[in-house]
Amino acid sequence: MIQIIDYGAGNLKSVACALEKLGQDYQTIKYPEEIADSAKIIFPGVGAAGNAMRKLTESGFAAKIPQLRNPFLGICLGMQLLSGFSEESETTCLGIINGQTKRFPESVKIPQIGWNRVKIKKDCDLFQGLPDDSYFYFVNSYYVSAPEKFVLGETSYGLDFVSACKKMNFYGVQFHPEKSGDIGLKLLNNFCKLC
């Protein structure tokens, strides 16, 4: 069972559609009490960090998430919120991955919109069977600067930034697997297969 956290930041339809295509059993949840022990959690997000953290705090997810031991996947803003702090409206985040979320340099167009390559830095279940340097769809103005030991994948956009990371049961991807065609579906499927 996959549970998608709905905290009112962005639409969940794309993630739901992708899981539907994969034939996965899923549900969206609005309260931390709904989290099932056996579930895998997807934590999507678009929009601004400040607003999202406010909503997570109000709903009680902010306190609950760091304690989870379920396989957990933060997508885009969902990955950034795993960091300790975001430059976007100077927001204190969940602090699961010790690192900061920073804005792209002025030398590139912001936001980054489009397909970019992910260089796999460490073998892991999430990228199982996916070719190195595959294209994924990105939409972001900020990126997570995380310690090397948590880095799974890197992407070049005016600088090399962390596009996939992992700490214990927490995975983060800066791109949108649900919008990245077949390769994105494969990655989501890999996540669904985690135990």
Binding site: S107, V108, Q112, G114, W115, N116, R117, Y135, F138, T155, S156, Y157, G158, L159, D160
Partner: peptide, 11 residues
């Protein structure tokens, strides 16, 4: 700025 790669594809 030219030392840093940019692999973003044109759409």
């Amino acid at each position: 700025r030219q030392c840093f790669k940019n692999n973003l594809a044109k759409r």
